[in-house]
Design a binder for these strands. Structure first.
Lengths: 223, 223
DNA sequence: GAACCGTACTCCTCAGACAAGTAGAGGTGT
DNA sequence: ACACCTCTACTTGTCTGAGGAGTACGGTTC
């Protein structure tokens, strides 16, 4: 790895070295690291640099420095950001997960929706039609409607999951829309209107099915 | 807030102040923070302390220091740990999300399962029966089977989501099992066997339906 | 107008010094 | 023998001062 350009500051490099040694089990969970001065000699850097490396890992939740006692390992690995995980995943996988969440949410929404939910859905539906011409505006209006569906399901976990998917899906859909505009806008709008109607009519099965077929078409278009 | 004991080191306090000022929009996304020396004067601490605070926020992904250019805001807030989010959510919400994931995964598994997947599922099914008597062993054997179902769906995102749910669901189920053992072990096993069989028979609809009813019963028991 | 260069500003790293806190060794009293 | 106290060695915390290295921008030159 010494061949790569040292584009990272020394402190960041030191943090990487420490993290890898923690991952290798050199200092198990809960154990104490050597003193800062010792580490500085081992890593061949100054003490303040070691301190900054420790702070960086403390920010990630891996280390916990306690004055007078020492630096202790509080986690063996960094919890990877959900966002970066999604970025690595294929768009098809993400859409499939989105189908799972939205279809279930649509069914729950059909059971739990209030009158206010239906009003919000109808408003988002109307907004989707009159939305601007640019792909961004169109997708954003679409997302507002889909989010309203999930919100009507009254489930925080599902809503959090949906929000987590939005950035990844949004960019993918915008890219697609720039390459190939929607073939049949009327059919597209009809599918959304049917979804809203099924939720308003308290038809869980129909709502889930409508959502599923609509998103499956999207998956086919993106694949 | 000044009333609370200063249990945090100065650097951690400085990091908190900087983060709150970022949250307040003082420095929007992508903007540059004042120089270290300026911040040190503003916060009333030394320059190295400011540097350590910046490093801590850099570890959290909020700041990005670039040599020669300055320190820039890369995120307006800390991405909360997925695990802690789930801990705050109600168990019912989590189970509902799990239904969404596993039902879809079961359907996909029925389409994509290989012979090796079926062997793994049958093995996990058999293991579930002969598993130890303690609630922990029983739940863990159950989780192995359910995970095998999701794994057979060949979707990284769904599998990651399932793994994220496991800790929260596991503890809840163990607690429940300690209070009230399973009423009908035979029916419970039959439901799992039916799920595996539906996947083996490549019946997506039946697999999803079996998974859904089984988990809905679990949700009712935990509510 | 475009390419070049210098300067001011920024973060990066080191070294040294002292303060503040912890934990264990060792002594002391019962 | 046991409990308690104190003292000491070691740890992290903080500040200061000094250069090194990289970037951005304005001025200069062609």
């Amino acid at each position: 790895m010494a061949s790569t350009v040292q584009r990272h500051p020394l402190a960041a490099q030191a943090a990487e070295v420490l993290l890898s040694r923690i991952k290798d089990g050199e200092w198990p969970l809960g154990h104490k690291l050597p003193g800062e001065t010792t580490l500085a000699v081992q890593l061949g850097v100054g003490r303040s640099t070691v301190r900054e490396a420790i702070r960086e890992l403390a920010g990630k939740g891996v280390l916990d420095p306690r004055q007078g006692a020492g630096v202790f390992v509080t986690a063996v690995d960094v919890v990877e950001d959900w966002e970066s995980k999604l970025r690595r995943a294929s768009i098809v996988s993400v859409i499939e997960a989105r189908v799972a969440i939205e279809a279930e949410a649509a069914a729950l929404a059909a059971q739990r929706r209030t009158a206010a939910d239906v009003r919000a859905l109808r408003r988002a539906l109307a907004q989707r039609v009159v939305a601007g011409q640019t792909p961004e505006e169109h997708i954003d209006a679409d997302m507002v409607l889909h989010r309203a569906v999930v919100a009507a399901a009254r489930n925080d976990v599902l809503l959090e999951l949906f929000d987590g998917f939005v950035p990844r899906v949004r960019t993918a859909m915008i890219d697609m829309l720039k390459l190939k505009p929607i073939a049949a806008p009327e059919a597209d709008h009809a599918a959304h209107a049917a979804l809203v109607q099924a939720i308003a009519d308290r038809q869980p099965r129909e709502a889930a099915e409508t959502s599923r077929t609509h998103l499956s078409a999207l998956k086919a278009a993106l694949a």
